[in-house]
Simulated assay, not measured.
Amino acid sequence: MGSATALVTLYFLLPLNHSSTWPAVTMLVIGLVAFIGLVASQVRSIIRSPFPGLRAVEALATSVPLFLLLFASTYVVMAAMSAGDFGGSLTHTDGLYFAVTVFSTVGFGDITAKSEAARLVVTGQMIADLVVLGLAIKIIIGAVSRHRQPGGASGQAPEGIYR
């Protein structure tokens, strides 16, 4: 929970409305690579943990906010660079609200992507959402299941059990 709080605090403190195109794209790409690395390290941590279910909940509580904040940051920067991308500038709250709306597939319609560039980024988030919801959660749940199999995290069969 502390990680999610730190990420949200950092998001609201960053001067995102003073950025330009390349730093925004770079921030998103590096952030997504970091997100993949974070999930990979969390899976290893879940497999080794004596409490894999709890560790999996902690992993999701860190990785999902990071994922959403990466897109929220990108939306705020894009709106600041070009008012036509979203029909006006977005505050940090607006960017986060829009990212969560897209993630949850609710789509209220009060904030919409207007330019092709904005639509491409939103489409990228939609595809990544499906990957996060499908693949990342499956991997994390699989790590918990693997830990709970005979032999546990060590991969060694308990005495008397042969594979």
Rank of each mutant, 00 (worst) to 15 (best):
S3R: 10
A6S: 12
L7C: 01
T9S: 14
L10K: 15
Y11P: 00
F12G: 04
F12N: 10
L13M: 05
L16M: 12
L16G: 11
S19R: 07
S19M: 07
S19K: 06
T21F: 14
P23I: 09
A24S: 13
T26P: 00
M27V: 09
L28W: 06
I30E: 01
G31T: 07
F35I: 08
F35E: 03
F35S: 06
G37V: 13
A40C: 02
A40W: 04
S41Y: 09
V43C: 08
S45C: 04
I46Y: 07
I47M: 13
R48K: 15
F51H: 14
F51V: 15
P52V: 15
P52H: 14
G53W: 13
L54Q: 09
R55K: 15
V57C: 10
A59I: 07
A61P: 00
T62E: 02
S63F: 02
V64R: 04
L68D: 02
L68C: 11
L69F: 08
L69S: 07
L70M: 10
F71Y: 15
F71V: 14
A72I: 06
S73D: 11
T74G: 03
Y75W: 05
V77I: 15
A79P: 00
A80Q: 04
S82E: 12
D85Q: 07
D85T: 15
S89L: 09
S89V: 13
T91R: 06
T91C: 08
H92D: 09
D94P: 11
G95S: 07
F98N: 04
A99W: 05
A99K: 08
F108P: 00
I111Q: 02
I111W: 06
A113V: 05
K114Q: 14
S115V: 11
S115R: 07
E116M: 12
E116G: 11
A117Y: 05
R119I: 06
R119L: 02
V121N: 03
G124F: 04
Q125E: 07
M126Q: 10
I127D: 01
A128R: 13
D129W: 08
V131T: 14
V132E: 01
V132P: 00
L133G: 14
G134M: 03
L135R: 07
L135W: 11
L135C: 03
I137Y: 10
K138W: 15
I140C: 04
G142S: 09
G142V: 04
R148D: 01
Q149T: 11
Q149A: 05
G151S: 04
A153M: 06
S154A: 12
S154E: 01
A157W: 08
P158D: 10
P158N: 14
E159D: 10
G160I: 10
I161D: 03
I161M: 09
